[in-house]
Design a protein around this nucleic acid. Structure first.
Lengths: 162, 162
DNA sequence: GCTTTTGACTAACTTTGACTTTCAATACAA
DNA sequence: TTGTATTGAAAGTCAAAGTTAGTCAAAAGC
């Protein structure tokens, strides 16, 4: 693996795969030691690769007997999952979060690789022309509209521009 | 070789030829060092010699473990149609025209029904919040960005993992 | 005049480590 | 016993440093 955090991501995902449950518990420090990295690197990976949007939940406790629990978030299957994302995308969303959701939908098999690409394009480069300050809300509107489409809502259009 | 960028072009093409895959991954800085040029020269070559029109696609990532991936696109099989639409969608496009193009792509089997829906959503409802005067150009930017993405993906229906 | 070459500056990600906070267990005092 | 202070073992935070790649415009070659 060419970089640490990808390796850590894979390692954790493998643990999740082999675990009987849909969560695992680790000790941050010993995992870091096993993987030969500083403990805070684990936090970085959890933030960037196991975010809520990507379909994970991280709980932890400090002190003696502390732990980090990584839970596969139940986001529903099929329609439910898309609905969940739709309701969680409010009036504004950062690029990273949007891409997190798209990543999750793709991983869950709810959109194909090509569909995921179209979503990513629309909320990525597709809004790069919008002034920085308005970009997050532009993204949210486009993403929500596309999600509605995935849910099968008809799109109003009377042939003229509304 | 009379100039640097031709040499770099040949070098990269040779790498593509000998690679088993239809893409290669390089590290910009080390390639530059191997070839005895400044790193930004690589970008220049990629822009001028490995452009979309010439049948290539370039993706990259920065930071630790960063890379530049150069993909040779398969030609034919209707790709020309996507390219045509891409080049015809200039800096602004009406909703009706956009829908027309999307419909055509769908009829030609270049995008699936769902993909067409996503395109329609993005350039329809997705830009309804934009001030009317700017809507056509917003539409064009989003559509072009999405089409660009389509050019880099395998065809629908026979799709493999990206 | 066009293309090519260069390099200073910028942006995006990653890695590290010093410092902080929280918690459980234990020790101690009343 | 009961409440409280101490302590050590976790995990969290944050900013600096490191590692890539991108941009842009000036300079250099046709």
């Amino acid at each position: 693996m060419k970089n640490l955090c990808d390796a850590i991501e894979q390692y954790i995902k493998e643990m999740l795969r082999t675990a009987g449950e849909d969560f695992i518990e680790i000790r941050r420090n010993s995992l870091a030691e096993q993987l030969g990295c500083v403990p805070s690197q684990i936090n970085y990976v959890l933030e960037t690769r196991f975010s809520l949007e990507r379909g994970y939940l991280v709980e932890s406790r400090r002190g003696g007997g502390g732990y980090v629990r990584i839970v596969r978030r139940r986001v529903g299957t099929g329609r439910d999952a898309v609905e969940t994302v739709f309701s969680e995308v409010r009036d504004a969303i950062s690029r990273a979060k949007a891409e997190g959701y798209i990543h999750m939908l793709e991983e869950e098999g709810l959109v194909s690789a090509r569909e995921a690409m179209l979503l990513r394009r629309a909320v990525g480069d597709g809004v790069s022309w919008v002034a920085r300050v308005d970009r997050d809300s532009a993204r949210a509107r486009i993403l929500r509209s596309m999600l509605l489409g995935l849910l099968g809502e008809p799109q109003p259009y009377n042939g003229r521009e509304a």
